[in-house]
């Protein structure tokens, strides 16, 4: 069986600003139908990478392919098949919401009117309101509606929820992605860049963590949650030095011990069990905790 062409394939991407390496040898492969998380702190190189996908920036070296095409050579072909929502969106302030969406639709070969009406209703947006009067959250909502209604094969979201209030953002991301996936889900791919990872916990199938322009970790979400575990043990008396080599980190406070492990959870459990704890349990890390743990790993290796 031939593997389908990746929607995004980046090899060894390097992009500098003057002497600063914003992206330094980054690799990324996103297969069709995925909801892919691109995680990193501010300044890690996420936006620079995304701009190279859109030919808003040109790589210094390395290759970038979107739908198998080079965005530098086939910019229009690439852009006509994707939607991009940057972290700060702007509309012409004199246009209404309806006019703004109409304007966006005029550039697109197709536009799902039912989806537009449905999302406007669910976000309780008044189509006759002027874009200039909208809050930041409402502007983002309009931008997301504008991004999904053309039913593009790829949806690129750069920090879609930063700066929004937590109650609004909790709801609207899954509403938008739900609407996006409602038609032909095998050909609907999402790349979402964010540092607010907990909001995307259930939505992400696969992710890459970047730091200082390099990949720290690429994994399927379920695999990562199996790999990274937090083990808590309680001993009848303070256990002294447990010598738990191979742990990512060990915290000890009196009789309680908390150990973070990467892939060796079972053997660590056995070693702790041999010391006769009164309580012993393990729990998967959340993606956000994995993000923090991967940062520790990266700094240790640097």
């Amino acid at each position: 069986m031939d593997a389908p062409t990746p929607v995004i394939e980046i090899n060894n991407l390097v992009r500098r600003y003057g002497r600063v390496d914003a992206v330094n040898g980054l690799n990324l492969t996103v297969r069709p139908g995925r909801c892919y998380g691109f995680f990193g702190r501010n300044g890690a190189g996420k936006t620079t990478t995304i701009k190279c996908l859109l030919n808003l920036l040109q790589p210094d070296s390395g290759t970038v392919r979107v739908f198998g095409l080079d965005p530098r050579r086939d910019e229009v072909a690439v852009k006509s098949r994707l939607s991009y929502v940057p972290d700060a969106v702007a509309f012409y302030p004199w246009m209404t919401i309806a006019e703004s969406l109409e304007f966006l639709a005029s550039f697109r070969p197709r536009w799902n009117r039912d989806m537009e009406a449905d999302l406007l209703r669910r976000f309780q947006l008044d189509p006759t309101q002027k874009a200039g009067q909208l809050s930041k959250g409402q502007k983002t909502q309009v931008a997301l509606i504008g991004a999904v209604c053309p039913e593009p094969e790829l949806l690129v979201l750069d920090e879609p929820t930063s700066g929004l209030d937590p109650i609004v953002r909790r709801e609207f991301i899954e509403t938008v992605i739900g609407a996006y996936h409602a038609t032909d889900p095998e050909h609907r791919t999402v790349l979402v860049s964010t540092h607010l990872i907990s909001e995307f916990e259930g939505l992400i199938d696969e992710f890459t963590i970047v730091e200082r322009g390099r990949v720290l970790l690429t994994s399927a979400a379920d695999t990562a949650r199996e790999r990274f575990q937090k083990i808590r043990a309680t001993f009848p008396t303070a256990p002294g030095d447990l010598e738990l080599a191979g742990a990512l980190s060990v915290r000890q406070s009196g009789c309680d011990v908390e150990v973070l492990v990467d892939g060796n959870g079972a053997s660590m459990m056995d070693r702790l069990r041999a010391r006769r704890p009164v309580d012993l349990r393990s729990q998967a890390l959340t993606l956000e905790e994995i993000f923090v743990a991967a940062g520790t790993l990266g700094r240790a290796a640097a």
């Binding site: 739900g178 996936h181 916990e201 939505l203």
Partner: peptide
């Protein structure tokens, strides 16, 4: 159905499928 359940549970549609 996939879409309402994925929105309710806040998980990816692929996961439910």
């Amino acid at each position: 159905a996939l879409r309402p359940l994925s929105e309710e549970l806040r998980v990816n549609r692929n996961t439910i499928a």
